[in-house]
Design a protein around this nucleic acid. Sequence first.
DNA 1: GTGAAAGCGCTAACAG
DNA 2: CTGTTAGCGCTTTCAC
Lengths: 344, 344
Amino acid sequence: MAELTLEDIATTAGVSRSTVSRVLNHQPNVRADVRERVWAVIQQTGYHPNAAARTLASQRSWMIGLVLPKSVGTFFSDPYFPQLTRGIAQACNQNEYTLGLFIMDSREEEEKLYPRISRTGLLDGILVQAGSTGDHLVERLLNSTMPMVYLGRPLKLQSVSFIDVANISGAKKAVSHLIHLGRKRIAHISGPTLSTAAIDRTQGYLDALAEAGMPVDTGLIRHGDFTESSGFECMQQLLAAHPDAVFTASDAMAYGAMRAITSQGLSIPAEVAVVGFDDLPTLQPPLPDLALTTVRQPIHEFGMQAVQLLIEVMDSPAAGPQGRTIETELLIRDTCGSHLACPV
Amino acid sequence: MAELTLEDIATTAGVSRSTVSRVLNHQPNVRADVRERVWAVIQQTGYHPNAAARTLASQRSWMIGLVLPKSVGTFFSDPYFPQLTRGIAQACNQNEYTLGLFIMDSREEEEKLYPRISRTGLLDGILVQAGSTGDHLVERLLNSTMPMVYLGRPLKLQSVSFIDVANISGAKKAVSHLIHLGRKRIAHISGPTLSTAAIDRTQGYLDALAEAGMPVDTGLIRHGDFTESSGFECMQQLLAAHPDAVFTASDAMAYGAMRAITSQGLSIPAEVAVVGFDDLPTLQPPLPDLALTTVRQPIHEFGMQAVQLLIEVMDSPAAGPQGRTIETELLIRDTCGSHLACPV
DNA sequence: GTGAAAGCGCTAACAG
DNA sequence: CTGTTAGCGCTTTCAC
């Protein structure tokens, strides 16, 4: 079954290739009746233009790539990425872009994939997920001329377009809330030291303490790796310092912390309040009747905005690097103890 | 910055375009010294061939699509898909294919995406995830000439290539194990009635009972939707019928069931044994010290095999529809009570 | 408003 | 073993 071509449509519609092309691309200069006639033929025959030919001639593939460097090790143990991917995919659909997925599991894959990603005629632009700082592939990509948006806070601002969650202010909101509720010894479980998201959330924690004139006790700070079990372990250690609250850099760690707290016979939130970060709907809470107070980051929205920004960058490359920040929301539920302190 | 072309490389290397093309595609008929000279130029200049031009000329895009119909609603609440996607991506990388992701959230998106997916010159083949039976998009795709592999059991075998997990035998292994341990009233929590995976796992349950000459009590069967909470609810109902074991069609439901059982003050596995299905590593068990006995499906492997099969289908379309089944493994841990019954 | 013609950058016979 | 010659199917000036 030989595929239909523009030529075929042109012939049966009794017009030239150019005209069919104009109709296909919704260009104005076509007489209404001709346009209809051509559309009719297109519909009847079920013709679809050849993507490669179109890309070659127009120098535009209408395809963008989502690049996940190998340093994003948690990709599939963390519900964050599926959500993000879904937001990105949806925005792609809305804007008629096809989404290419580039997942690297090893340094070798990074080496092999780099030429494919940077090859012209395949991608119009890329979304690059921030991994640990100093990732080799990311560095190379940053130095290429491919239009891109970095997902997260880049090390040196102003050199690349990026979109990030307002981690600092989000974390600060959470900790300030705990302070206002009268908590005095607020512990903090941060993420990996190379994660800018973790660094920024810790910064928010420090900012909140500073604003309240409260001292920083490094004995109340631990670094986990965003997972439940690391939250459990960090909290076990922290309990020796008798905190009356803990702010964790992820919900999973908050759940781990809750498990540690209750297993010591302490009550939440009366004796130790807990506030997390993420609000991923799919996590199963350890204590069904105790909803976690947390900082919600709108991941799906984040993904959609990322695509939108990339489109802007691709459409007007002369505008230079753009930055965008997505706001968070403090969701006050049970574990912060608001109902204990605020009987209003 | 004008992009380099084959022509440029040919000129500076002092050969013709064809020769450069041959070198690029690792074709044999090139003298060794010429080959090296050309490679040198390619390396120095950092030249990468244009993907669209290559696709147009060779009629091969080296890109495959992963299609997730809207009926796959659980896509991002279920750790199954991220794992699957990772396996697929890895196999694509190994075989030099680019992966396109097509996620549909609504019927409208399905309509809009169909032409893009079936458009020639974009995809060499597609992987179509099974959703609920009778999905509109899937029907259309099945009737197209696009090389494809269906992920799951198709309704009418023999009309399409597919790859599936051995759900029936896996479930049967699980239930037979419970029977051998002396359990008499084995309940079952199945999945959605439109899911072939759920249907097959239930079949395995029935087969095991039949083989043992045990009666089927429909009062011991409930349908959940694979989620934790549905497992909890189904188990609450089932407990009224006093089962001494339960086999669930997913780990998440098994965890829900465990929560229901313990909240009734019953002990696992002494009073009620539990066996799940999946063995997804990322789920957080409700009872940290009680590991779930379950049927492991090697999802990552499944994804890789799916790509392999698709490649076979694309390379030899004349061979007709191919079917492949991936075996499961019964992982005996704590919740089935093996240690109680088998003091060997 | 419409058609002719010239590519887009590559692959693949076909000669030599 | 290497170069010449046609395209692949579409977009896009440029005339008319």
